[in-house]
């Protein structure tokens, strides 16, 4: 990787609280990464830049983004709000145009949306007028499959996401997690080269989200599919990813690419392992830098006001 080589001092965070460095990899993990690197590059992003004009003048949303994703790799993109991670994935999907650089899928430049890149959106993107089965059949039908074969494929993929029983339900009759599973099936039925996921579980409650993460890993393990997954949840990124692309804001740039040292297969118990905690500490340090924290909190939009007007009776204290 050529993006950023951490200096020894940078590698230290965590060392103080008894954690190993996040750069330390067990032999099995190191072996796995070596194998991954041997795999074919599915997606390559070179010197990607995105500028757009707004009322405040020209804004640089993304600058000098470089990375590669190998076949069957699971890459997460993480960063503070406004770092352009959604813009990045939308460019990869072909929904937005970039201003400079290249996006290559199997060596071919991306020019617009296409079935070779499946996308799962954060919001509910199912077609409300189609039943679950018809939603999944949509892609194959659009791409010239016969109704019979589309239906056969749809059934197969609905079983894969465990929703075979709901084939004839309408999206509004499903829970949030179920809808996102349909969206995943709908994207996968097209057999894309890469699955792009834009904070797909962001709107779900914690329990459902954990279930969906496990489910997604299971699907990924059993399919020849490469995943690029956007999230703002650190635990989610570490739990799912082989590598984590950390972006910073204003302009959006790659800060570091972290090889997650947590061995596979993953399970929720690993959340408390030293590797996991070391990686999380590193991500936290990158996304909320400790030295800047004081100033940011004072000035940032999300800062709490010093004083809040009191609307309760004097003496009626809860703390």
């Amino acid at each position: 990787m050529n993006e950023h080589t951490p200096t020894p001092t940078e590698a230290l965070p965590g060392a103080g609280n008894g954690l190993p460095s996040y750069l330390e990899q067990s032999p099995a993990v190191r072996e796995r990464f070596a194998q991954l690197q041997q795999r074919k590059v599915i997606l390559e992003v070179r010197d990607l830049q995105k500028r757009y004009k707004s009322l405040q003048g020209e804004t640089e949303a993304l600058r000098n983004i470089n990375f590669q994703v190998h076949r069957r790799e699971f890459v997460c993109v993480i960063g503070p709000s406004g770092c352009g991670k959604s813009t990045l994935i939308r460019i990869l999907a072909g929904l937005e145009k970039h201003t400079a650089g290249d996006v290559l899928l199997d060596g071919q430049p991306v020019t617009g949306p296409g079935r070779d890149r499946g996308m799962v959106f954060q919001g509910y993107s199912l077609f409300p007028w189609l039943t679950v089965k018809r939603n999944v059949m949509f892609g194959p039908l659009m791409n010239g499959h016969s109704r019979d074969s589309a239906e056969r494929e749809a059934r197969l993929w609905l079983d894969m996401v465990n929703l075979g029983k709901f084939a004839d339900a309408y999206p509004h009759q499903l829970s949030g997690g179920m809808r996102q599973r349909v969206a995943i099936a709908r994207a996968l039925v097209n057999e894309p080269r890469i699955l792009l996921m834009d904070e797909p579980f962001g709107a779900l409650d914690a329990q459902t989200r954990a279930k969906m993460q496990r489910h997604l890993l299971k699907i990924w393990r059993n399919l020849d599919i490469t995943v690029l997954f956007i999230t703002h949840d650190l635990d989610e990124a570490i739990y799912l990813a082989d590598r984590i692309l950390v972006l910073k804001a204003n302009p959006g740039e790659v800060q570091e690419v972290i090889e997650v040292p947590v061995p596979r297969p993953r399970s929720p118990e690993q959340f408390s392992t030293p590797e996991f905690r070391a990686t999380k500490a590193r991500l936290e340090a990158l996304i909320h830098p400790p030295e800047a924290q004081g100033e940011e909190e004072a000035e940032g939009e999300d800062a709490l006001p010093e004083k809040i007007i009191r609307f309760t009776n004097v003496g009626d204290n809860v703390e």
């Binding site: 072909g94 929904l95 079935r115 499946g118 993107s125 077609f127 659009m142 709908r186 994207a187």
Partner: peptide, 18 residues
């Protein structure tokens, strides 16, 4: 009409008149 729905359709390979 929700733009996400249109974008979803485009990523599924729908274009133009369809």
């Amino acid at each position: 009409l929700d733009t996400t729905i249109l974008e979803a359709a485009r990523t599924l390979g729908t274009r133009g008149w369809r």
